[in-house]
């Protein structure tokens, strides 16, 4: 059985590496914003959020911050995710699911290539 004590090891490990994000590197951070209002949650925003967290952890992406917001405003296109790069370019992905998240992480967050087919511009 796991014990909370094990967190001390995670803490030690993170403090030893340069893993901790400081305020000073806010400028180099790409933000992933998941819409989590009632309609987003009902449409499947929770597994989308958790998949982002899992992928960011598994791939060790240190400059990606996964956050949440309320209503993004287009119910029928939920779950909606916005990716905002350090330079302020915003991409809105719609009708997301865990598989699409894997692709967005791989192509957009890792290789800097927007996944056009999932963007709001291409929504039917």
């Amino acid at each position: 059985m796991k014990s909370l004590e094990e967190l001390r090891a995670i803490k030690a490990k993170m403090q030893n590496s340069v893993q901790l994000r400081g305020v000073e590197d806010e400028d180099s951070v790409t933000r992933v914003v998941v819409g989590m209002a009632t309609c987003g949650i009902a449409a499947g925003a929770r597994p989308v959020l958790n998949k982002f967290i899992e992928e960011v952890q598994n791939r060790g992406l240190k400059n990606v911050l996964v956050t949440q917001t309320g209503c993004i405003g287009v119910c029928r296109l939920e779950p909606i995710v916005e990716v905002i790069t350090p330079t302020g370019e915003k991409t809105t992905y719609v009708k997301m699911n865990a598989d699409k998240v894997a692709k967005v992480v791989h192509e957009h967050l890792v290789n800097n290539k927007v996944v056009d087919e999932y963007t709001i511009a291409n929504a039917d």
Binding site: K2, L4, L7, R8, I10, K11, M14, Q15, Q19, I53
Partner: peptide, 24 residues
């Protein structure tokens, strides 16, 4: 609060911590 005490300055929202908490 118990989790934060163990973590000291490390945020509970770090993906690694969240993954650990999931298993816990």
């Amino acid at each position: 609060d118990d989790v934060k005490e163990m973590l000291g300055g490390v945020s509970v929202s770090e993906p690694e911590v969240l993954m650990w908490l999931t298993e816990y």
